[in-house]
Design a protein around this nucleic acid. Sequence first.
DNA 1: GTCTATAGATAGATAGAC
DNA 2: GTCTATCTATCTATAGAC
Lengths: 230, 230
Amino acid sequence: MNPPTPPTPPAPPAPPAAPARPARVQGSTPEKILDTAEALFARRGFGSVGLREVARDVGLSKSAVFHHFPTKADLYHAVLVRILGGIAEGVLVESDARLGPLARLIRIFERLVDALAESPNRAPLLLRTLFEDDVVDDGMIPEAEAMLESILDRLRALIDQGIGAGELRDVPSAHVLQSLLGGLLFHFASGEFGEELIGEPTYSAAAIRRHKAFIVSFIEHGLAARPPER
Amino acid sequence: MNPPTPPTPPAPPAPPAAPARPARVQGSTPEKILDTAEALFARRGFGSVGLREVARDVGLSKSAVFHHFPTKADLYHAVLVRILGGIAEGVLVESDARLGPLARLIRIFERLVDALAESPNRAPLLLRTLFEDDVVDDGMIPEAEAMLESILDRLRALIDQGIGAGELRDVPSAHVLQSLLGGLLFHFASGEFGEELIGEPTYSAAAIRRHKAFIVSFIEHGLAARPPER
DNA sequence: GTCTATAGATAGATAGAC
DNA sequence: GTCTATCTATCTATAGAC
């Protein structure tokens, strides 16, 4: 628990000269605040996180945090928008037009899995946001809502195209998308419960690979009109 | 902010004589508190609900609430245990032994959908509990954890039996169960977001029917070794 | 069993010095 | 841009009268 660290032992408030460990919290002060707040909001939700704790973890006073983000809601929204941006990046990219809707859908969901696996904060925060009425649904964050909508529209359009092209069974696309997202997010958001259930760390390479395979398998077996060629 | 509170307002705290509407909040005082807290916790989570609000909605003082439930965590746990009991009831019942594992699995999931549809609080509270580390995972509520485990064990055993009997494809049962639960819960927990996406009230008879059909369809097409006979 | 009163801590947010 | 000090409101929880 206490490695010697001979060169400069008794220096807990390290001067900003040599960052001993290349910790995650780097970059500008707003970025540091966003990183810290993202982790806390993802773990415990909007209401259960105090700005006192955020400020302490960043190494600032509460007032400094308020200087960068005028309200707690603003901070949450900034965190959310940053995460949605990272996810939209992987989803909204134009895919190879030579592929059919089914193949494109599979590719996009593979990218979605990768995007969610990139940080253990993304899925929990997104899942919370989608079903916590308080924070998002008050219509106060058009930016985040527009980003979310564009992602969902893209996915739903692909499903509808697949149905139209006869590649997918005639399913209620919105309903399927909703439940597919639920299963997708829940895996990465289920924390200790999920790890206990599946018996390995949620974000291990093996679990991510298995989850991607599950999502693809669901699309191929549960949605595709014809079973995959093997 | 300060309504005068005349002697007898329009009578919000209806006397227990004639229940004008057969409202949900009836029964003993602890039951009333549980009903109220359940709705609030489901909507906003543990940390964002104050006992002040619970007490106000019940029509009691905070102290009266504390008399029945010594701590806020105790109240949450009581709510959780009651919900898990209602769900386990539908899941742990012995099913017809003449049916194969696949048919039994489908029946149990149909009952699970019904159990979650019974109250709009069940799925949100359960979903929250499963991925909020704070409330449940501290190992302080063996009762709820044991109930949850028995439900999950039952479902997972059925999947494994189905695989063993050749009725289901050889899938990682825990992983599939996790994602299936995620999709199942998320539909009923997604609130305004879900209603906007699928375009109808989540708990409407049509949406419930559609969700049940989706779950069954997923099992039949995505898990069963052979496609269903039509 | 329910109440008022209160304790002690913390919440989000602001003022103003530096 | 960061700080200390402070504001007001609320938090969980307790004490004690009735």
